[in-house]
Write a protein that binds this DNA or RNA. Structure first.
Length: 127
DNA sequence: CGTGTGACCGGCG
DNA sequence: ACGCCGGCCACAC
């Protein structure tokens, strides 16, 4: 597989000399700064497969078993909604984690001022 | 091998 | 404002 992750990112190799799509996703998510969020589509776009946002979501399914830990709560959909909150230990955990980072959530689902906190890997990371 | 399934997205009516 | 649909593709049966 083509290596599309910057060499200095903490990519975890699961296969010898190869980087999997999931690993790429996890490497990016780990780069999201505290108090910032990004979207599934933005990650997919950065990986060069912008139509595969669903894959990013699918990757997050397995994220909880990854080490080091993945700040999965910083990944939401393009509208800033916590569509993945059901996959956390409790349905409110995702919101609580964001709240700890001073990100306010409305009605337990939508991030307030989402644009303000949005972190685009294509903008912030270099190839 | 084949097939179904997504924590999605953008476009169209 | 809504809903539907097609694209996408790694992974687990």
């Amino acid at each position: 597989m083509k290596k599309i992750i910057p060499h200095n990112l903490p990519v975890v190799k699961t296969k010898k000399d190869s980087f999997t799509f999931f690993d790429d996703v996890y490497a990016i998510v780990r780069q999201i700064p505290k108090g910032r969020v990004t979207s599934y589509g933005a990650i997919a776009n950065y990986l060069g497969t912008k139509l595969s946002a669903r894959m990013v979501g699918w990757a997050m399914n397995a994220a909880h078993s990854q080490k080091p830990k993945i700040p999965a709560h910083r990944v939401v959909n393009r509208n800033g909604m916590l569509t993945g909150r059901m996959h956390f230990a409790t349905p409110t955990l995702m919101e609580e984690l964001l709240l700890k980072e001073k990100i306010m959530v409305k009605d337990n689902i939508t991030i307030i001022n989402f644009e303000k906190y949005f972190w685009d890997p294509a903008q912030e990371l270099e190839f």
